[in-house]
Amino acid sequence: EAEIKAARERAIVPLEARMKQFKDMLLERGVSAFSTWEKELHKIVFDPRYLLLNPKERKQVFDQYVKTR
């Protein structure tokens, strides 16, 4: 159900806005820029903003977040 709702939101909200919300979530959840995606996943997986991006986009935004922190 959450994935269906997220898919609707992905269709409406522009990618750039969704990427910003995802980055904000990473900051708010205290995701370490010195860790790996796999180790940090448990901090963010239950946040509704996690589903704003598809899996490939999530990883790309995380990688970008790590490089710029």
Score class of each variant (00 low, 15 high):
residue 26 L to Q: 00
residue 32 S to K: 13
residue 64 Q to C: 09
residue 20 K to P: 10
residue 18 R to I: 01
residue 56 K to F: 14
residue 41 L to A: 09
residue 13 V to W: 05
residue 46 F to M: 13
residue 54 N to L: 13
residue 40 E to V: 06
residue 39 K to M: 12
residue 10 R to P: 13
residue 69 R to T: 12
residue 33 A to H: 09
residue 44 I to R: 00
residue 39 K to H: 06
residue 51 L to E: 13
residue 1 E to L: 04
residue 34 F to R: 13
residue 36 T to Y: 05
residue 68 T to C: 07
residue 25 M to D: 00
residue 23 K to D: 10
residue 23 K to L: 10
residue 65 Y to G: 01
residue 5 K to V: 06
residue 49 R to P: 01
residue 39 K to S: 10
residue 64 Q to K: 13
residue 35 S to A: 12
residue 15 L to S: 08
residue 49 R to D: 02
residue 20 K to G: 12
residue 22 F to G: 00
residue 27 L to F: 08
residue 66 V to H: 05
residue 55 P to F: 15
residue 43 K to W: 02
residue 1 E to K: 14
residue 38 E to K: 15
residue 39 K to Y: 08
residue 56 K to W: 12
residue 43 K to E: 02
residue 49 R to E: 00
residue 11 A to R: 13
residue 15 L to V: 11
residue 63 D to W: 11
residue 64 Q to A: 13
residue 12 I to Y: 08
residue 69 R to F: 15
residue 59 K to L: 14
residue 28 E to N: 04
residue 31 V to L: 02
residue 28 E to S: 05
residue 35 S to V: 02
residue 21 Q to Y: 08
residue 60 Q to G: 09
residue 14 P to E: 08
residue 34 F to M: 15
residue 20 K to F: 01
residue 11 A to M: 15
residue 39 K to F: 03
residue 29 R to H: 12
residue 48 P to H: 14
residue 21 Q to D: 11
residue 7 A to T: 09
residue 22 F to I: 01
residue 23 K to H: 14
residue 27 L to D: 07
residue 56 K to P: 13
residue 49 R to F: 00
residue 23 K to A: 14
residue 48 P to R: 10
residue 27 L to E: 15
residue 42 H to G: 08
residue 14 P to R: 06
residue 58 R to Q: 12
residue 15 L to K: 14
residue 40 E to Q: 13
residue 36 T to G: 05
residue 64 Q to R: 09
residue 43 K to D: 02
residue 69 R to E: 15
residue 36 T to C: 12
residue 59 K to Y: 07
residue 17 A to M: 07
residue 60 Q to N: 12
residue 9 E to T: 11
residue 37 W to D: 02
residue 23 K to T: 13
residue 56 K to G: 12
residue 67 K to A: 14
residue 42 H to R: 11
residue 7 A to N: 08
residue 38 E to C: 03
residue 54 N to M: 10
residue 63 D to F: 06
residue 67 K to C: 09
residue 29 R to M: 08
residue 64 Q to V: 10
residue 11 A to C: 10
residue 40 E to P: 00
residue 67 K to H: 13
residue 25 M to Q: 00
residue 42 H to L: 04
residue 65 Y to D: 02
residue 61 V to L: 06
residue 7 A to M: 12
residue 27 L to T: 11
residue 22 F to D: 00
residue 42 H to Y: 04
residue 29 R to C: 12
residue 60 Q to W: 08
residue 8 R to G: 12
residue 11 A to W: 06
residue 2 A to Q: 11
residue 11 A to Q: 14
residue 66 V to G: 08
residue 48 P to T: 10
residue 38 E to M: 02
residue 31 V to Y: 02
residue 9 E to V: 09
residue 15 L to I: 05
residue 15 L to W: 06
residue 3 E to M: 10
residue 47 D to W: 00
residue 40 E to T: 04
residue 2 A to V: 05
residue 24 D to N: 09
residue 5 K to L: 12
residue 43 K to Y: 00
residue 15 L to M: 08
residue 4 I to R: 04
residue 10 R to V: 15
residue 43 K to V: 01
residue 18 R to L: 03
residue 64 Q to D: 14
residue 23 K to V: 05
residue 1 E to Y: 02
residue 38 E to A: 09
residue 63 D to S: 13
residue 69 R to P: 13
residue 26 L to G: 00
residue 52 L to I: 09
residue 41 L to C: 05
residue 62 F to P: 01
residue 21 Q to C: 04
residue 55 P to N: 14
residue 14 P to S: 08
residue 9 E to S: 07
residue 36 T to N: 15
residue 21 Q to A: 10
residue 52 L to R: 04
residue 61 V to S: 09
residue 31 V to W: 02
residue 63 D to T: 10
residue 37 W to T: 02
residue 52 L to W: 04
residue 5 K to A: 06
residue 52 L to C: 06
residue 32 S to W: 03
residue 57 E to M: 07
residue 7 A to C: 02
residue 43 K to R: 06
residue 6 A to Y: 04
residue 14 P to Q: 06
residue 46 F to C: 15
residue 58 R to H: 03
residue 47 D to G: 00
residue 48 P to D: 10
residue 30 G to M: 04
residue 51 L to S: 09
residue 14 P to K: 05
residue 48 P to C: 09
residue 56 K to H: 09
residue 28 E to W: 02
residue 22 F to P: 00
residue 7 A to Y: 05
residue 16 E to G: 12
residue 18 R to E: 03
residue 25 M to S: 02
residue 69 R to V: 15
residue 3 E to K: 06
residue 22 F to S: 00
residue 1 E to R: 10
residue 66 V to P: 02
residue 19 M to K: 14
residue 7 A to R: 12
residue 45 V to T: 13
residue 20 K to V: 14
residue 48 P to L: 04
residue 8 R to L: 05
residue 52 L to Y: 04
residue 68 T to E: 15
residue 22 F to A: 00
residue 1 E to S: 05
residue 1 E to W: 04
residue 50 Y to M: 05
residue 8 R to D: 15
residue 44 I to W: 01
residue 36 T to R: 05
residue 43 K to H: 03
residue 62 F to S: 01
residue 9 E to G: 13
residue 34 F to L: 15
residue 9 E to D: 08
residue 30 G to D: 10
residue 11 A to V: 11
residue 22 F to L: 01
residue 1 E to A: 04
residue 53 L to F: 02
residue 66 V to R: 10
residue 46 F to D: 15
residue 33 A to I: 13
residue 32 S to M: 05
residue 2 A to Y: 04
residue 40 E to S: 08
residue 31 V to I: 14
residue 48 P to M: 07
residue 20 K to R: 08
residue 64 Q to E: 13
residue 32 S to N: 12
residue 56 K to A: 15
residue 25 M to K: 00
residue 34 F to S: 15
residue 45 V to N: 15
residue 51 L to W: 09
residue 9 E to F: 04
residue 9 E to Q: 10
residue 24 D to Q: 08
residue 57 E to L: 10
residue 50 Y to K: 02
residue 34 F to A: 13
residue 45 V to H: 15
residue 6 A to Q: 11
residue 22 F to N: 00
residue 25 M to R: 00
residue 46 F to V: 14
residue 55 P to L: 10
residue 67 K to N: 11
residue 52 L to K: 05
residue 35 S to K: 03
residue 46 F to Y: 11
residue 7 A to L: 09
residue 69 R to Q: 15
residue 4 I to V: 12
residue 3 E to L: 08
residue 6 A to F: 07
residue 62 F to E: 02
residue 49 R to I: 02
residue 58 R to A: 13
residue 17 A to D: 10
residue 34 F to W: 11
residue 65 Y to L: 09
residue 42 H to F: 05
residue 3 E to D: 14
residue 35 S to C: 03
residue 29 R to N: 15
residue 42 H to S: 12
residue 23 K to I: 05
residue 26 L to E: 00
residue 21 Q to V: 09
residue 14 P to M: 05
residue 3 E to C: 04
residue 28 E to M: 04
residue 31 V to C: 11
residue 13 V to S: 10
residue 30 G to W: 01
residue 44 I to E: 01
residue 5 K to T: 06
residue 15 L to R: 10
residue 8 R to I: 04
residue 57 E to G: 04
residue 17 A to C: 12
residue 18 R to A: 05
residue 54 N to Q: 15
residue 29 R to G: 03
residue 20 K to E: 04
residue 6 A to R: 12
residue 15 L to Q: 11
residue 51 L to N: 06
residue 26 L to H: 00
residue 3 E to A: 04
residue 28 E to Y: 05
residue 3 E to T: 07
residue 9 E to C: 01
residue 53 L to N: 01
residue 3 E to V: 10
residue 31 V to K: 01
residue 49 R to Y: 00
residue 26 L to R: 00
residue 62 F to Q: 02
residue 8 R to F: 05
residue 58 R to E: 01
residue 66 V to E: 05
residue 44 I to Q: 00
residue 52 L to D: 05
residue 32 S to L: 11
residue 53 L to D: 00
residue 22 F to C: 02
residue 2 A to P: 09
residue 45 V to W: 08
residue 36 T to M: 04
residue 12 I to L: 11
residue 61 V to N: 03
residue 1 E to M: 15
residue 59 K to D: 13
residue 17 A to N: 06
residue 20 K to W: 04
residue 13 V to I: 07
residue 24 D to A: 09
residue 18 R to M: 02
residue 25 M to F: 03
residue 21 Q to F: 09
residue 25 M to N: 00
residue 24 D to T: 15
residue 53 L to W: 00
residue 30 G to T: 04
residue 52 L to G: 07
residue 67 K to T: 14
residue 5 K to I: 07
residue 60 Q to R: 10
residue 40 E to M: 03
residue 44 I to H: 02
